[in-house]
Design a protein around this nucleic acid. Structure first.
Lengths: 122, 122
DNA sequence: CTGCATGGTTTACATCCGTAGACTTTCGGC
DNA sequence: GCCGAAAGTCTACGGATGTAAACCATGCAG
């Protein structure tokens, strides 16, 4: 089951903090995304159907929490880009960002660090 | 205007070789993607509408060529993932692939090379 | 007890997408 | 000049998505 782009905004909110009531989601996401109350209700319903979140009763209302983990989602999205766009190879992807000067000095440092670690682990 | 996933398959074919006639596209993509002739015709039409490709008359038929460049598309797709999933930062993205052992030895070598080059250019 | 607020469910609707059939136009061969 | 194949255009249709209104249930305040 696929999480749509609007739905993923709601997931992000829940990954950042959970559980949250519909009301909380509405109050934070509404303004942030320019969504009406109903829109958020719909997204909640769809995410429940997709079993990306669960509802836990808390008296009259429900508290929602993610079922799909952020990591699973990130992995999924990344895989998809990698396969669709870069033929499954990582280096071209990084090269792309490098060429387009999307690599900040900090990114570079982190990358070096990362590569060193991987080398060590090898 | 957004290029859909099926449409991007057709774009890939045109980026690899252009111009191509509808017939050629049908004969290569049809089997490869399991698409019927009509499907490919539709995709061509939609891509023309989206101005992602152009038609150049060649007698009775047309030859199609990309207008949107592969690089533009790649940049677009990558940006989108980066923003939607990684908050716009590259290192976490690469870290993700590293953690999930998606980095082949070859990727690693290429990455090191890449970083060295960037460092030099600095 | 009873109506209202609050939260949840149903319905709505335009657009995009994947997939494809039907119809139309036109050029080249007979 | 006419007909059929090839190319292109129009129509279709179900599912997903973005966006939201309408409606329903239910427990709390009065």
């Amino acid at each position: 089951m696929q999480i749509s782009s609007a739905e993923s905004m709601l997931m992000q909110a829940l990954w950042d903090r959970h559980p949250q009531s519909a009301d909380e989601l509405i109050r934070t996401l509404g303004p942030a995304q320019g969504w009406h109350e109903s829109t958020i209700k719909t997204l909640i319903t769809r995410l429940l159907q997709k079993q990306a979140i669960v509802a836990e009763k808390d008296g009259r209302r429900s508290l929602y929490a993610p079922l799909l983990t952020r990591d699973e989602w990130i992995a999924d999205q990344s895989e998809s880009l990698l396969d669709r766009v870069f033929g499954g190879r990582v280096a071209p992807l990084v090269a792309h960002f490098a060429e387009h000067r999307k690599l900040s000095r900090k990114d570079l440092a982190e990358l070096k660090q990362l590569i060193a670690e991987i080398d060590d682990a090898d």
